[in-house]
Amino acid sequence: MNLKEQIALVDKIREHLKKVMDPELNINVVDLGLIYDVSLIEENAVEIVMTLTTPGCPLHDSIIGGVKHCVLELEEIDHADIQLVWEPAWSPEKMTEAGLKAIGR
């Protein structure tokens, strides 16, 4: 896979991750700014670095599991490694314009 194809796949993964919704806010994890990094570690393996809005988020396990299921749905991906980080902490500035609009800002 050349660089152009890798970039296209990362974009596809990011777009696909919009299927994962935070059920409390009803905004997807990408527009909410939870996905910090998507990188291909091997041809069919992806590493996703993400956070949550708060460390004690009750939807902790559900959202992380959802992100994993979602990327594994793609036929190009066989393995997904989800890294949950608290640094840098999530802030509203990380939300996309669509996310802010959905929340009424």
Binding site: K19, V20, M21, P23, E24, N26, S62, I63, G65, G66, V67, K68, H69, C70, E73
Partner: peptide, 8 residues
């Protein structure tokens, strides 16, 4: 979640 649409 992530596999199919889920309610809010």
């Amino acid at each position: 979640i992530g596999k199919k649409d889920v309610p809010a």
